[in-house]
Amino acid sequence: MTKMSRERVLDAALELVDQVGVGGLSMRKLGAALGVEAMTLYYYVPNKDAVLDGLVERVMTRAFAIDPRAGWQHLLRDFAVSLRRELLRHPGVLHLVATRPVTTPDAMRMLEAGVTVLREAGFGLREAFHVMNTVAMFTTGHCLAEVDPPGGTPPRVPEVAPEEFPNIAEAIQAGLGTPEDHQARFDLALDTLVEGFALVARREIPAG
């Protein structure tokens, strides 16, 4: 039997949330999934809020790594791509990542490392935080539009009259909303974001 630890509790919580959503998560259910009483969990996580914060940490830190040989643009692209991959794997935590701030030490170390790289590249302190937050928010929002949370009802494709909405009808016919379309939109927006940040780094446009 694997030894109980905070990491094991969070991994089990992540698996449970993927099945039942955040609304279905309880310490009792989490304990049952691990084969222990709910009270046992409090040796490893102080309360349910700590579990939720830990889930945000789990997804964010798995998506973030610094390659010392690469520049800040590679860091942002890799972070966005990796975060999207993790969020699509774990749609149950999407709303958590979208609404809960980074608060755990491991998650804050990730943010600190990213801001350090950006400041070394010439971004100001506030700009560096804005850049990191913008990439995370863009990626999370994109994923919210891509997948349905556990227990949700998949949206239906609207019926569109071609004579009234010719462009929309043509786009739907061409595959608007397919996984391939989501990928293309994500790539286009990410490229545009990173190129815009490069202008800020060179001070060709005001940072605001």
Results as ranks from 00 to 15, higher is better:
Gly21Ile: 13
Gly21Ala: 07
Val22Ser: 02
Val22Tyr: 01
Gly23Ser: 11
Gly23Gln: 13
Gly23Thr: 06
Leu25Cys: 11
Ser26Ala: 06
Ser26Asp: 08
Met27Tyr: 07
Arg28Cys: 03
Lys29Phe: 03
Leu30Phe: 06
Leu30Asn: 02
Leu30Gly: 05
Gly31Tyr: 11
Gly31Cys: 08
Gly31Asn: 11
Gly31Gln: 05
Ala32Met: 15
Ala33Met: 12
Ala33Val: 04
Glu37Pro: 01
Ala38Leu: 04
Ala38Thr: 08
Met39Thr: 12
Met39His: 12
Tyr44Gln: 04
Asn47His: 13
Asn47Phe: 10
Asn47Gln: 10
Lys48Tyr: 10
Asp49Ile: 14
Val51Thr: 08
Gly54Trp: 00
Leu55Asn: 05
Glu57Leu: 03
Glu57His: 04
Glu57Ile: 08
Arg58Asn: 11
Arg58His: 14
Thr61Arg: 14
Arg62Phe: 07
Ala63Val: 05
Ala63His: 07
Phe64Leu: 09
Phe64Thr: 01
Ala65Leu: 12
Ile66Met: 06
Pro68Asp: 14
Pro68Lys: 07
Pro68Ile: 12
Arg69Ile: 10
Arg69Trp: 04
Gly71Asp: 14
Gly71Pro: 06
Trp72Ala: 00
Gln73Thr: 14
Leu75Pro: 00
Leu76Cys: 01
Leu76Glu: 00
Asp78Val: 00
Phe79Tyr: 13
Phe79Asn: 00
Ser82Pro: 02
Ser82Ala: 08
Ser82Asp: 04
Leu83Pro: 01
Leu83Phe: 09
Leu83Ile: 03
Arg85Met: 09
Arg85Leu: 11
Arg85Gln: 09
Glu86Gln: 14
Glu86Leu: 04
Leu88Trp: 02
Leu88Ile: 15
Leu88Arg: 15
His90Ser: 14
His90Gln: 07
Pro91Met: 12
Pro91Glu: 10
Leu94Met: 07
Leu94Asn: 02
His95Glu: 09
His95Ser: 12
Leu96Lys: 02
Leu96Met: 09
